[in-house]
């Protein structure tokens, strides 16, 4: 029983370590911002959760496992939010993702999109009865 739990725990830790290494290589090797963000997202979610699960099995039913669960809860909210926030900021400031041939998907000059006022991605919900937003 002890051996089986140790084996399971170490298997989870090794899988988490593999994801972390793969994410690290991806951040260095992938060509543009969005694909690198994808690689770092693997590190944030896959690697972190596998390592936490492996450590929880090592910790057993104790206060350590409770703390690890709380860390996992925190990461469950914070890491996808930071990834989303980075991607949304890049998209909003006009960074175009690469297409299959390795060129930018939308040939949009960055200087122009940066000079323009930032517009919200979603239109502002209007109150019922209120005037519709004026479209330019």
């Amino acid at each position: 029983m002890e051996i089986a739990l140790d084996l399971l725990s170490w298997a989870l830790l090794l899988v988490g370590g593999f994801f972390a290494i793969a994410g690290g290589i991806g951040v260095v090797r992938l060509p543009d911002f969005y694909t690198r963000l994808h690689a770092s997202g693997v590190t944030d979610t896959g690697a972190a959760y596998f390592i936490l699960a492996g450590l929880m099995i090592q910790g057993g039913l104790s206060i350590i496992t409770v703390k690890l669960v709380l860390i996992g809860f925190f990461m469950f909210f914070s890491n996808p939010t930071s990834t989303y926030s980075l991607a949304a900021a890049a998209h909003r400031s006009g960074m175009a993702p690469l297409d299959g041939a390795g060129g930018p998907n939308k040939p949009e000059p960055v200087e122009k999109s940066l000079a323009e006022p930032i517009e919200p991605i979603e239109p502002t919900p209007t109150k019922p009865g209120g005037a519709p937003p004026s479209q330019p």
């Binding site: 925190f74 914070s78 939010t81 919200p120 991605i121 979603e122 239109p123 502002t124 919900p125």
Partner: peptide
Amino acid sequence: MMTSQHLILRVVSKILIPLI
């Protein structure tokens, strides 16, 4: 501040700030 943006950021930070 433009309140129509950052919906996810606002919701998640409201969850996380008390925990922090």
